Amino acid sequence: MTPILMLQEAATQALPEQAPAQTVEIADQAGQAADAAAAAGHFNILDLILHASIPVQLVMLLLLFASIASWLIIFRKKRVLDRADKEAEKFEERFWSGAELSKLYSGATERGRSAEGLEAIFEAGFREFNRIRQRRGVDSRIQLEGAQRAMRATSSRELDGLEHNLEFLASVGSISPYVGLFGTVWGIMISFQGLANVKEATIATVAPGISEALIATAMGLFAAIPAVWAYNRFATKVERISTRYDAFSEEFSSILQRQAHADE
């Protein structure tokens, strides 16, 4: 047998023995790569928070409290505004149903019951109108102006109660992203500072610190977005209620003006 034929036969016999070993090695490498990808895709947020630096943890705690307080205000403010809207609608139905003003006033001043919203505005205006009317020789214009002042003051108090805590939502919505950004900048600064003692810096070295820092920004957005949405929605609703109060005050002033002229 010639040397060439002997080499071809040896290569043909060695190929089937090496192929399975190479296949197993490639499969092991692929499995390790898949495991590494799976581990990188499933991280524990709680571990990142607990291993963050103390300033970043304080920032996260502050944002958590701001978010909880915002949600409490959101639920409470929604209930208050919905109740004010429903009470205004019910009182307008009674007012324009043809009931006597004296009966409406008696119902608003019942013992153990406090008037709110439109009913409080009506009660203040009608009380001041009757008080001035009892004086002798008082001009009808003075009666009307006194009733209007009383209604404006009561309307301002009612709107102030409806707007209570809205400024907190505005502050959380505008400040929280910057507070979270401060935590992120601080965490990244600490991560890069730790590279001073490392000879060979890789992405794996700084990745955990950067991940911890970025959670602060995420928490800032989590606190800010609902607060901004709620503030815009509630501010618009308070503005509509304010317009409703003003319209009622003008219409009731017209009624009082006609009654004052009738008394003359």
Score class of each variant (00 low, 15 high):
126 F>L: 13
175 I>F: 13
117 G>Q: 04
140 S>W: 00
115 A>D: 09
102 S>G: 10
124 A>Q: 09
116 E>F: 00
157 R>K: 15
152 R>W: 00
174 S>V: 10
109 T>C: 00
102 S>L: 08
130 N>I: 13
179 V>F: 03
98 G>H: 07
132 I>W: 10
111 R>V: 04
157 R>H: 13
180 G>R: 02
175 I>D: 02
153 A>W: 02
129 F>Y: 15
100 E>V: 12
131 R>P: 06
169 L>Y: 11
133 R>I: 13
168 F>S: 13
180 G>N: 03
162 L>M: 15
140 S>F: 00
147 A>C: 04
130 N>Y: 06
127 R>S: 15
110 E>V: 11
174 S>N: 15
159 L>E: 11
181 L>Q: 13
120 A>C: 05
108 A>I: 08
117 G>V: 05
124 A>M: 09
166 L>P: 03
168 F>N: 10
144 L>A: 02
112 G>I: 07
150 A>R: 02
106 S>V: 06
143 Q>R: 08
158 E>F: 03
157 R>F: 08
167 E>V: 05
125 G>H: 03
181 L>N: 12
121 I>W: 08
94 R>P: 04
177 P>A: 10
181 L>P: 11
122 F>E: 08
104 L>R: 04
136 R>D: 14
176 S>V: 06
131 R>C: 04
139 D>V: 09
107 G>Q: 04
139 D>S: 14
137 G>T: 03
143 Q>F: 01
157 R>P: 06
152 R>G: 05
150 A>Q: 01
102 S>K: 06
121 I>C: 12
141 R>W: 00
111 R>P: 01
122 F>P: 06
143 Q>C: 12
173 G>F: 10
166 L>E: 02
124 A>T: 11
150 A>V: 03
118 L>N: 01
95 F>Q: 03
151 M>P: 07
145 E>I: 07
128 E>T: 14
133 R>L: 15
121 I>A: 10
139 D>T: 10
108 A>P: 04
127 R>H: 14
158 E>Q: 11
109 T>H: 01
97 S>V: 09
123 E>I: 11
111 R>D: 01
162 L>H: 07
165 N>W: 14
125 G>N: 01
97 S>P: 07
133 R>W: 13
122 F>K: 07
107 G>I: 01
138 V>G: 10
174 S>F: 07
101 L>Y: 05
135 R>A: 15
119 E>H: 09
111 R>N: 00
183 G>N: 07
176 S>D: 05
